[in-house]
């Protein structure tokens, strides 16, 4: 490296041939192309594996029956599918309204206040907090005091993850609505709350839906926050107070089991979860068009 360089006040000036520079440039360009290919290849590899192995688990029983006891062939994950839907729905019902409220405050009432700045700051931090930590937190406040795992503690854990996502997207989306919209409604004599809910919300509709979908996509494939809250169960959903079967924790348990039939079912569940999450994500992208995930 040193042989072609001479030092001039601390900086090395390298005299290199044009050919060398061009070759280096092509090499880096090729490497860049290969890196992008690698990224796409990994995505393809994962999706291919999930589809290939997942499909082989699909049959009537898989979608309609309860799991069989360990080691017994057959059975299905119908209870876990239902459980995942219930948990996600319940989390949405808790997390989305809270997120909308916080978002409204941030954009409409406290846009530039110090308080809002802190809320935004901590919303970002909460979004970046590992989901397993949120699982532990809910475990300490909802599972320990009541003495048992339950569907609602699982749903609350997911809701805590959705809350900041919805709050931040609502904040951003409402701020994009031109002030003239608000002013015209207010000038007509509409109260603030009606202006926000009926005028501002309507013009930001697509953005708000995107925010909600984004949050749903984020939590529906989550496992870690459910491990110590909803846990899992081999039975049908039997109330919000009981441990509840769900697809992701089932994948974890089944994949780690020594039974081939269980591992096969874990692949089936993987395909369902991946397809669901990717479908929601692609919908958000379509709605947002130019924006990123």
């Amino acid at each position: 490296m040193v042989e072609t360089s001479k030092k001039t006040d601390g900086r090395s000036v390298k005299a290199r041939s044009l050919a060398y520079r061009k070759i280096k440039n092509s090499l880096v360009s090729i490497l860049a192309g290969l890196s992008a290919l690698l990224g796409l290849f990994i995505l393809g590899w994962i999706l291919f594996t999930v589809v290939e192995r997942g499909f082989s688990a699909f049959n009537w029983a898989f979608f309609t029956e309860l799991p069989n006891p360990p080691g017994m062939e057959g059975g299905g994950l119908a209870n876990a599918m239902l459980g995942t839907i219930i948990l996600t729905l319940l989390a949405t019902l808790i997390g989305v309204p809270l997120g909308l409220l916080a978002g409204i405050y941030l954009s409409e009432f406290g846009k530039n206040s110090k308080f809002s700045e802190w809320v935004r700051f901590f919303a970002n931090i909460l979004m970046g907090t590992p989901s397993i930590i949120i699982g532990i937190f809910i475990y300490t406040i909802l599972v320990v005091p009541f003495g048992h795992f339950s569907a609602y503690s699982g749903a609350v854990a997911l809701a805590v993850m959705m809350f900041p996502v919805v709050a931040r997207t609502t904040d951003d989306m409402l701020q994009m609505v031109p002030a003239a919209m608000r002013e015209s409604a207010l000038a007509l004599g509409a109260p603030r709350w009606r202006t926000i809910l009926e005028i501002v919300f309507r013009s930001a509709k697509n953005g708000l839906i995107t925010g909600v979908l984004l949050a749903v996509a984020r939590v529906s494939g989550e496992t870690a926050p459910l491990l110590f809250t909803a846990l899992n169960s081999p039975f049908w959903f039997s109330g919000l107070n009981e441990p509840t079967a769900n697809l992701t924790v089932t994948i974890f348990n089944y994949a780690m089991s020594p039974y081939e039939d269980w591992q096969r079912m874990a692949w089936g569940a993987s395909l369902l979860i991946s397809a669901g999450v990717l479908a929601v994500t692609l919908t958000t992208r379509f709605l947002l068009k130019e924006k990123r995930i």
């Binding site: 992008a36 990224g39 796409l40 990994i42 995505l43 590899w45 994962i46 594996t49 999930v50 192995r53 996509a217 494939g221 989550e222 496992t223 870690a224 992701t248 994948i251 974890f252 994949a255 591992q263 874990a266 692949w267 993987s270 979860i273 991946s274 999450v277 990717l278 994500t281 992208r285 990123r292 995930i293």
Partner: peptide, 21 residues
Amino acid sequence: TGVELLAAVPSIIFGMWGLFV
């Protein structure tokens, strides 16, 4: 889009693929 979709693949799917493939 392809590269960014990697971010949408749930963690547990990476786990399954990682362990078995």
